[in-house]
Amino acid sequence: MPIVELVERLGAFILDGIVALGNFVLFLFRSVLYAMLPPYKPRLALRQVRIIGAESLMLIVLISTFTGMVLGLQGYHTLHLFGAEDSLGTLVGLALVRELGPVLAALMIAARAGSAMAAELGSMQASEQIDALTVMAINPLQYLVSPRMIAGVVSFPILTVTFNVIGIWAGYLVGCGLLGASGGAYFNNLAANMTRHDIALTLYKALVFGVVVMSVCCYKGYHAKRMATGISRATTEAVVLSSVLVLAWDYFMGSILL
């Protein structure tokens, strides 16, 4: 009997998972579709670019500075063991551009803007503001979610590139400015070893992470249960799930595109 119950629960869990996945894919598809259909609301998308992009800039600057500094410090000491300090620029640059830049930028935006977005949409759901849009014959997906998706696709690549550039400079300041590695070799080796493919990879990843983080956070907020714990749960799930998916996609994209 316990085994039957266990199988039943497992079956229900898997079925719920399939239904949730189907709902999410439909949500994503509709949000992207409505972003391309009139009426166009560039004002709403620009407002979200400000919230997701511009207001995340200081956080990105801060995190990328420390990330670059740590890479410069650890990279220098490790390479120094082999007398390869000249490769510091390659190490810092490739680590940032291929992996750390897009991933850390996405995680930071998910934590800052994604959580706020899930909480805002959850609160709108709980207080029937989303229903109010529907009864005014305004498509809530098109009005609330599509502009956020557009803003994610625009903001993530810009913030990722910003992260990479600042991180590389921070690595240079620590490795070359403080620890004594050659500044010329730092940038020469970086330029020699970084290809267009690496830059394309960072942009592809940023675009995909933008869609992943925005869609997950919007989905969780939009479908929050109409109570206080529903909003807090949606916010937590939005950040956790989008972070896990960013890391999982990072691996898959890295293994396919690298």
Binding site: S123, M124, S127, E128, Q129, D131, A132, T134, V135, M136, A137
Partner: peptide, 17 residues
């Protein structure tokens, strides 16, 4: 098209905060 004929007041107001 049908919804545009409606005006609705929700129980809790549902104003955009």
């Amino acid at each position: 098209a049908v919804r545009e004929k409606f005006g609705m007041l929700f129980q809790a107001g549902a104003l955009f905060d």
